[in-house]
Design a protein around this nucleic acid. Structure first.
Lengths: 199, 199
DNA sequence: AAGATTGATGTAGATTTCTACATCAAGAGA
DNA sequence: TCTCTTGATGTAGAAATCTACATCAATCTT
């Protein structure tokens, strides 16, 4: 149900499919009933940590708690295949930018802005930490941050917030839809790890 | 019980202490009973994913599944073996933050707050100026400053002051006790920005 | 010395996972 | 068509989390 737990469940499913295992095959290896695996992958259950770790172990995955600040860099490594250090630079920039954005959002005056809007902004900013960002994406982030700063120095300027909001939303959509629309320099990894052909 | 789950529990505990939160403070933020947090940190329970994610969220941590092959690289990032220049920035930020905190304390309304509390806050804030702060410590300062600002805009919100107070106190204790909790291998950067160690 | 705070531990009860087992619709392949 | 595999769904019951509440020893603060 949770937004964060969905991500975990999806990762498990992707990892399983990537290893060419059926739910029953994984069931045999992990000692977890197939029916339960199905429910887990569909987010129908709030599984226990031991179950999650056991499944992850079989799938050669390690469960780790990573500081939000360093999430973009970590994801760059996880998603990165051979490019590696080249993209780490932009990933570091993105880290700083997203962190600053998060700070700016946290500093938004609650008197002139509804709580819902703030939460929505925060959610979007943190959601973007999950993506691997290209240099082109960085520009948009910078613009969004600049707009946010503009509003912070002049709380009457509601247009600035809306612009930042729109920018974050469209960036997210672009990233969520096609893996690399704005990253022509990094065409495609040698292999795929996205198995999102179904809901 | 499991070996992998112990690591998670320990990470939660470290992160909580690093943020200067007591189990009860974390309990209030995450909506999880203090007794349960204690059991979780001691590995006495096999907690559910939702509980783990909820606690992690409050602690600015993100639960991620990382391929075992890339675990060393990820851990290197988490440990912060790569940042370096970031610490100069954070040091400057810390200076500004502490100054602002001092200003905020000076601006506290003396009608709704006892003089003793104000002095105590001021003492703590200035005491922190003697320490060399890491980037992670900055977050706490920001939160304390935010809480303080919250109280300034709404003097009825006494909880905000108490939170800031607790945050400053525990941050001081953490700094005075062990120099580096989460980064024992790299306690301090190789360079310092200003050599006035004496004070 | 007195008081406040922290973390650990326990009890009782509601809620939920988790297992074992069965079944079903959709799809692939012979 | 027949068969096999895949993933989704259901039931009944054992086991565990999780909450609310209380209490306790140790430590810090005044």
């Amino acid at each position: 149900m949770g937004y964060a737990t969905e991500h975990i469940a999806e990762s498990l499913k992707v990892a399983r499919e990537r290893k060419g295992l059926s739910q029953r095959a994984l069931s045999a290896k992990a000692g977890v009933p197939q029916s339960h695996i199905s429910k887990i992958e569909n987010g129908a259950v709030d599984l226990r940590l031991s179950s999650l770790v056991e499944l992850a172990r079989v799938l050669d995955l390690e469960l780790t708690l990573v500081p939000r600040k360093k999430l973009p860099a970590v994801r760059a490594i996880i998603r990165g295949d051979d490019d590696g250090h080249l993209d780490v630079q932009s990933a570091r920039k993105a880290t700083n930018l997203l962190q600053r954005l998060d700070d700016q959002i946290a500093a938004l005056p609650s008197e002139t802005l509804s709580e819902i809007v703030v939460q929505e902004l925060q959610r979007r900013a943190r959601e973007l930490m999950h993506f691997k960002l290209s240099a082109d994406d960085l520009v948009q982030l910078q613009e969004a941050s600049a707009a946010m700063q503009e509003f912070l120095s002049d709380p009457r300027n509601l247009e600035a917030v809306e612009q930042a909001q729109s920018q974050l939303r469209m960036l997210r959509n672009a990233l969520a839809h096609g893996a690399g629309i704005s990253a022509p320099s990094l065409p495609r990894p040698a292999y795929r790890l996205d198995g999102d052909d179904r809901g």
